[in-house]
Design a protein around this nucleic acid. Structure first.
Lengths: 336, 336
DNA sequence: CTGAAAGCGCTTACAG
DNA sequence: CTGAAAGCGCTTACAG
């Protein structure tokens, strides 16, 4: 009964202390001052559990990502957490390790903790899991889930725009023979990127050669193997776009191992703009995934929903090409 | 009053529902069954705020790290969170961005949220900030803070052991001229690593040459510059140990740029074993920081303390050298 | 502008 | 083995 002590010391009722605490209007300045002094003197800290029990809100948001160890996520987490902190919201954070069962239990845990809202920032989702939050009446937002965009709030990202930019860069350098390293086509997100890439190719009237498309596991190792496959083709592409940076790094290593100089003999573009993109040699040109903006949009949407504000349908976020040192005119062209 | 509904439905008192919920003994099996059925039928989820208000514990732990974007931390966060989840503890997570003021406010926020315990896994700490938790009576643990180890629970890491192992490896390859890239000597942690390195050198009777010790900013860029400085020395070392992997990566790039082949012309060893260590070319030999074990020790210590168990003084965790492709016998030796 | 009091949803001695 | 009831620390109509 700690607010009671403060009330006693300030010679007011607990109601008044509560009003001062919450900055409600209609407290005489002199009274408020007395209360503030009492709070300070007693080092009083309100009990958030009691408060939550009363008002039914916890000022706790849940954030679920696929994998902390994936260097894609830290920036997203960072951005989300900073915004939350600024609004006095605490974040409970967890990751699914790409496991839909863990998504299910993560959402359940968040509901049990009675968070006010949940951001599901995983690459893969499952409706079953999401339905739990819907039933509990907890606002939720997804990251770029095309298929579910009509059923759940969603932060869309326009991958196509990114690939178009990358392609235009390669074309302007003189490349026409362009390969692609895709992710496992069982994943919706990987299919989305591949489709976006081939669409971009076609829109420039370039023929899509299936033998110049290799599949990797989205990790460095997969990129290496995929690039080895592409290098074995004859003819081989003069430029390769990888659907994520991790595979682009693997591709770079494969080129190294085959004594193929990047960018002189082969141009390479990644996707995501992970911190490693600047750490490899040569520094990787890559399409930056606007993940800070994704986090900001997601938080904003949840925050507004929790406040009872209506949320307008959002336009897709645009990725942009970051040109570094892994692209150059094709070798043939240079020699002319 | 939701436990009341369950109680009604099961024809028992709320006390009995509570007992069943918490798995307390002394409830007739038949009664418990009725309660369980009612819980299931009503999709009842207990309110953690009400529970916390009553019992004074929240099953919430705070985890504070320096920087999510630093690839050192995700594994630590991952390990800590997994252990917590296994015990039904939720983690509120935040990072200080190396800012002691933010450490202060982070700890304050955690106290306001009435977490049961706090793991301060930052490289730098400040007693002022820590005192808040002490005053609030909240158990706390630090990561390898030599200076404060006697005052606060601490998970020590034996850097020296790591450097000794690295050095022995280099010596066995035939190196005698060994340089070091240290972090800013204003940081306690960076001084610790440098002292550990020079101690290891001396213990092998090797003279410490100050001109072979360069200082970097702990980031890639700093490693590059530091390595440039070392490469300008004459004579120059045949092997260099960097006090973290980020700087080792920078050093690798500097060598590349100067057309110095690693490991043929120069051996290089990092510290930490970040994911990037395997992504650069050549893959970096490095001293693995046992950060998963640090997280496990930290959690274990807090968990035991919260349970009221006494915690024995722990021995230091040992880093170990991971040999990859950035080390080889010195060039001179090879030619013979 | 301020206070008395009910109530949020649990747990836990206490009693039987 | 089970229940009646107090109380954790707040907020919020309601009354004045």
């Amino acid at each position: 009964m700690d607010i009671v002590q403060v009330a006693k010391r300030a010679n007011v009722s607990t109601a008044t202390v509560s009003r001062v605490l919450n900055g409600f209007p209609g407290v005489r300045e002199k009274t408020a001052l007395r209360v503030h002094r009492a709070i300070a003197e007693m080092h009083y800290i309100p009990n958030p559990n009691a408060r939550s029990l009363r008002v039914g809100r916890t000022r706790l948001f849940g954030l679920i990502v696929s994998d902390v160890n994936n260097p894609f996520f830290p920036e997203l987490i960072d951005a989300f957490e900073s915004l939350a902190t600024a609004e006095g919201i605490e974040v409970i954070f967890t990751h699914t390790n790409y496991d839909l069962k863990r998504l299910h239990s993560s959402i359940r845990r968040m509901i049990e903790r009675s968070v006010d809202a949940i951001a599901v920032m995983t690459s893969e989702v499952e409706e079953d899991a999401l339905q739990q939050a819907v039933q509990a009446g907890i606002p939720m937002v997804l990251m770029n889930q095309r298929k579910l965009a009509h059923k759940y709030p969603n932060v869309p990202v326009d991958y196509s725009a990114g690939f178009r930019e990358a392609l235009e860069h390669l074309l302007s350098l003189g490349h026409r023979d362009i390969g692609f390293i895709a992710g496992p086509q069982s994943l919706d997100s990987a299919r989305g990127r591949k489709d976006a890439f081939t669409a971009a190719l076609k829109s420039h009237g370039i023929h899509v050669r299936n033998e110049w498309i290799a599949i990797g596991d989205l990790r460095v190792e997969g990129g290496r193997k995929a690039m080895d496959a592409l290098l074995a083709r004859s003819p081989r592409p003069t430029a390769v776009v990888a659907s994520n940076d991790l595979m682009a790094v693997g591709a770079l290593q494969a080129a190294h191992a085959s004594r193929i100089h990047v960018p002189r003999d082969l141009s390479l573009i990644g996707f995501d703009d992970l911190p490693i993109a600047t750490m490899v040699h040569p520094a990787l040109s890559t399409i930056r995934h606007p993940r800070r903006e994704v986090a900001a949009r997601a938080f904003d949407l949840l925050w507004k929903t929790v406040q009872g504000e209506s949320v307008a349908e959002a336009s897709a976020l645009q990725p942009h090409l970051v040109i570094r040192n892994s692209t150059a005119p094709p070798a043939g062209l240079k020699r002319r």
